[in-house]
Structures are given as C-alpha cells and as structure tokens.
Design a protein around this nucleic acid. Structure first.
Lengths: 254, 254
DNA sequence: ACCGCCTATTCATCCGATAAATCGAAGGAT
DNA sequence: ATCCTTCGATTTATCGGATGAATAGGCGGT
C-alpha cells in the first residue's frame, strides 16, 4: 500500500522511514529538520507545517533536542480532532457518533468477548467492585472512569486500533457531555446493574446474555442522551442521490 | 461542547467563528492570515502550521486571494489520513479496518434501508444495470465505481458523516488493494448476484433478506481479502489489561 | 453586453535571527 | 565510587520580514 494519495511529503517520508525500520527499534532517530529540509527539498517552514499534521495525528513525538521520533500507531488522535470539531459546530454530531459506537460495540461483541482471558475476567470484576464502591460510598461518586474502562477493556483484546480509537473518542465525548448532567441514583444503579449482568455473563462464558445486557444498557444510556436529536444535522451528504458513480468531493458551500 | 481539549488555536477559532455564523452563510469570509495573526497573538508561521492541520482535516478551503473559507464538515479526510498511514506501515491494518466497515454496514443496515426513497430504489437498480453491462461487455470491465457507489448509496440517507467517512475511506483503500488483484469472472458474477439479491430485496421492502445477502456478499469479499491476515499487527493496545482506570497514552516505544 | 488586461489583495515560500528546551558530558561534593 | 549540579551544544519553537505566485474584481476597449 502506497501513500501516493497523500499531499504531505513528511507523512510519506515517515511511512517509508518506518517501513525500513521493519518493526524493530521504533525509537530509531529521524533526521533533524535541517537535514530533512535538504533531503526533501523543502524549506524548514513548509516542513514544519506538514510536521504539525503528523504531530496532530499522533504519528510522531517531537521534542527539542530529542528531535522527531516515531510514535506507536494510534487511530484516536485523528478521530478526536475531527470529532471534537464536529461536536463544536453541530449539536447533532454526538448522537450520530454515539450510534456508530453502539453498532461497533454490538458488532464486535462476540469476537471481543471470546478473546478475553481469565485475568481479564478478574480485572472486569475488580472494576465492577470499584464502581459499586464509588456508587455506594458517602458521598456518592459517579464511576465515570470505571464506566469508560469497562467498555474499553472488553474490546481491548481485539487489538484493533480503529475500534479502539472510535471507542476512546466516544468515551471522551461522552464524559464531556455527561459530566455536566444531573444523574440520579436510580438511573446510575440501573446502569450499573446492567454492567454487572454483562460482566457476570462474560465470566460465565455466556456471550449472548452479555450481549443482551449490553443492548439494554445502551438503550438506557441513549434514553438520557439525545438532547439535540431533533435538531437537523448540519452535515450534507456528498452524494445521497447521485446520478453518476465518480463521487466528487467538496462541492456545495451551503 | 467546547474545544478546550485542543492544542490548536486555529481549530478553536474556526469552530467559534463558524458557530457565530449559525449555519447560515457558510461562505462568510474568515479574516486573512495577517489579521488572525494580530487577533490570536501568533506569528504567521505558527498560524500556518496550525492552519495546515485544519486544511488536512478538510475543515477549510484555503486559496490565494480568496482567503480561508469554511468547508462542509466531513469526517473522511481525518480517517483517510490516519488510515493511509496505517496501511503503509502495517499490512494487517486493511483487514482490521475491513472488519470495522463490515460491522458498521451490518449494524446500520435496517435503519439505512428503511430511509431509502423510491427514487433511491430506482437509482440502485440503474447502478446494477450499469454494473452488469460492464461485466458482460466485451471486454469485461470490473465495475469498481458501481460497487463503491452501491454501498455508499444504501447508507447515504443516514446522513451520518461518521458512517459516510468510514465507508468512503474503506472503499478507497479497497480499490487501492483490489485493483491490483486478479479477479476471475466466476468470482465477479457471484459478487454481483449477491448485490442483485440485495437490491431486489431492498426494493421489495424485505430488509432482512437484503441483510442476509449483504452478509453473504461480505463473506465472499473477505475470502479474497486477508492476504496479510496471519501477520501480527504492529498495533499495541494502550491498556489491554490495565490495573487502573486512567488510561494513559503514548507510553511504550517498542 | 461582452471580453481581455491590470492591479490590489491574499496566500505561498523562503530566509535569518533569537528564544527555549533538554540531553549528555564535565566537574565538584559527599 | 556515587550522586548531584552546572554548563554547553544541539534541536526545536517562534517570530518578522522579503519576495514570489495566484486570482478576484475592477477598468477600459470593442
């Protein structure tokens, strides 16, 4: 797979450089900006513009003196950037992304649960315990971190960066929305009873029962979301009813 | 929703500016770079670095004389950038993204099909006709564009930018992979018989039958993919078996 | 009314200078 | 010998300015 579709020289260079490393020694140094400037025939300024994209996508770490280093690949930064912007300009976006998250979790459920190890089961139960402790402590705390961690852990063994990125981005957005919202005790305990059922089913090896609990749990969550669901999305599809095939981008300007 | 999580001044500014437009007049001019430089207290150079990120994410169009203009929101550029990089450095990434696509299509199927209008049904059948014409013409042509368009059209009415971005990105990657691959006539006609069954079921109002055809079609596709499925993913999950909740990013350096 | 030229505005690109950060070595204290 | 501090060199961070390139819109000619 080649990056010919990219208009960013640094990204192409980074990919080639990383390929040559062949998985080993990810921390191998990348030439300094001045050197890259010569090698790629670009000015420092232009180089830094493109490097900023790579940095924003989380593909490299760049620090003074240390220089530019490859970072472990992660889909999250790209999703986070675009999603945060969407949330800022369109109140409808959270629900749309939430639906995506739902279908991703539903779809990958059985495969993910099947991959879980005994130590994961223990870790899940430990998380539940921590969550109940927060819920029933005085004062009552909302176990946001545990909620997020529970979902992420279940799908962690998939080792799928795209799934991971979408789920992480969702929970970031979810916490940003939910943290400002009143949550009554009845609602919270209902949510966590579903979680408990989910985890118990997983540990008992009954993935189907776990899936049903996940569905119920999701419905409960969504009944509290959707504050802006009636508002119309600002998003316009590129080719909802196209005549031809070659979908052309960036046309309408509203 | 606020963009406080972002380290990019331009993105925050753009979101605020666009919000003030309130949906109307997306083509309202954005101040020139020199002006933004004063307003945000940043140098032109630094500004351009950040602006390049916004441009790469497809959030703005920037041209000489015209200046910077808001673009219709699109999730695709972000996914495309990160996905292309992943594909370049990890042969396993295509399969992982392909699985995501599969579950997204399966998950949204019923809702998407229910939204389709009579004119969409006609457009789908027209696409099928065009595809068969290519398949049975002399010389035989592979209806790549129709394949992509068919899938996109079915989910187009969802009006969900995230679904749209993922599907578009998938088909871009798929064509890049598949176009270089030998495809025999028997395989192609099998694929398109499933498509025909899918479209016929949609037009007949039988979403379940359409879903079954989609599943079969996907299995057939996947039996041809997965050239690199046995290779191990370079991706390392951040917290597959974490002890604590606060998932910390960017740690291991392999 | 139409067409082509001109100009002002804006981005595009590059250069050079200075500040800030930090890794590693050298040197001193215990 | 070990640890800590200091210092210097390297690299990124940020800025301002100069010049080039592109083009939208105005101007004038037909």
């Amino acid at each position: 797979m080649e990056l010919k579709a990219l208009d960013n020289d640094i990204l192409r260079y980074l990919a080639r450089h990383r390929l040559k490393l062949n998985g080993k020694a990810l921390s191998e140094p990348i030439p300094a900006l001045t050197e890259l400037s010569d090698e790629l025939g670009l000015s420092i300024g232009k180089l830094r513009e493109q490097l900023e994209v790579a940095r924003a996508l989380g593909l490299v770490d760049v620090k003074p003196r240390t220089g530019i280093r490859h970072a472990p690949y992660d889909f999250l930064p790209a999703v986070r950037l675009s999603l945060l912007y969407a949330l800022a300009i369109d109140p409808c976006a959270f629900d749309q992304f939430s639906q995506l998250r739902t279908h991703v979790e539903f779809g990958f459920w059985h495969e993910a649960v099947a991959l879980l190890q005994p130590e994961d089961h223990e870790a899940l139960q430990a998380l539940m315990k921590a969550a109940w402790a927060k819920l029933e402590g005085t004062p009552t705390q909302i176990p946001h971190a545990e909620h997020r961690q529970l979902h992420l852990m279940i799908f962690g063994r998939l080792n799928n960066p795209f799934v991971h990125g979408i789920l992480e981005a969702y929970w970031e957005a979810y916490e940003a929305v939910e943290l400002n919202r009143f949550a009554d005790y009845a609602y919270l305990t209902a949510v966590w009873r579903y979680h408990q059922a989910m985890v118990d089913a997983i540990c008992a090896g009954d993935a189907d029962a776990g899936h049903r609990a996940l569905v119920e749990h999701t419905h409960l969550l969504q009944s509290r979301e959707g504050s802006a669901r009636k508002s119309k999305s600002l998003y316009r599809p590129r080719d909802a009813v196209p005549g031809r095939a070659g979908a052309d981008l960036s046309k309408e300007t509203t």
